[in-house]
Amino acid sequence: MTPTPHTPHTSKTQEALDARDALATALTQAGIQLPAMDIRTPWVDDREVEAPYALVHLGVCSAPVAHLLADVITKGITG
């Protein structure tokens, strides 16, 4: 899967953008920042008006950040 350059804000990409922003806000409130979060969509040919899906790409993170994420998720499950 490759990011589509200049993807128009269709309902699927807007849904993914909203999800990315909500996740970034929640992570910030938990004291966690991922270095790169973006949206990925499949290449759309000229016949398709809208991408069939869009994904929130979380990028990579360091081991300490991964541990923080695990701790926050575990506390949410048990808390």
Rank of each mutant, 00 (worst) to 15 (best):
Q29H: 06
A30K: 07
P35I: 05
Q14Y: 04
L23Y: 08
R20K: 15
L27R: 01
E15A: 09
R47K: 14
L34H: 04
D18V: 02
D45H: 13
R47S: 15
T25S: 12
A30F: 01
P42Q: 07
A19T: 04
A16L: 00
V49Q: 13
E50I: 07
K12I: 00
A22V: 06
G31Y: 06
A16H: 00
D21L: 04
K12T: 12
I39K: 00
D18C: 02
A26D: 09
K12A: 14
R40V: 11
P8F: 02
L23F: 07
V44F: 04
D18N: 14
D18K: 06
R47V: 13
Q33G: 13
P8N: 03
A24Q: 09
P35Q: 10
T28Q: 10
L23V: 07
D38W: 10
A30L: 04
M37R: 03
Q33F: 05
A16I: 03
K12F: 07
D38C: 05
Q33A: 12
R20I: 03
Q14I: 06
A22R: 14
P42W: 04
P42K: 05
I39D: 00
P8G: 01
A19I: 00
D45E: 12
Q29T: 06
D45G: 11
D46S: 14
W43E: 11
A30V: 00
L23E: 03
P35H: 08
L17F: 05
W43C: 09
R20W: 01
D45M: 09
H6L: 15
H9E: 06
P8T: 02
S11V: 14
Q29F: 07
T7A: 13
D18E: 10
T13K: 03
L23Q: 08
T41S: 08
P8I: 00
D46F: 15
E50S: 08
W43K: 14
E48K: 11
P8C: 00
G31A: 03
A36Y: 08
T41G: 01
S11P: 01
T10Q: 06
A19M: 04
P42N: 06
Q33R: 15
V44R: 15
I32H: 05
Q29I: 04
T28V: 13
A26R: 10
Q29E: 07
P42S: 05
A22Q: 12
E15T: 02
G31E: 06
T25K: 11
A36M: 07
I39V: 11
P35F: 03
A16E: 02
I39N: 01
D21A: 11
D18G: 02
S11N: 13
E50K: 06
S11A: 09
D46L: 11
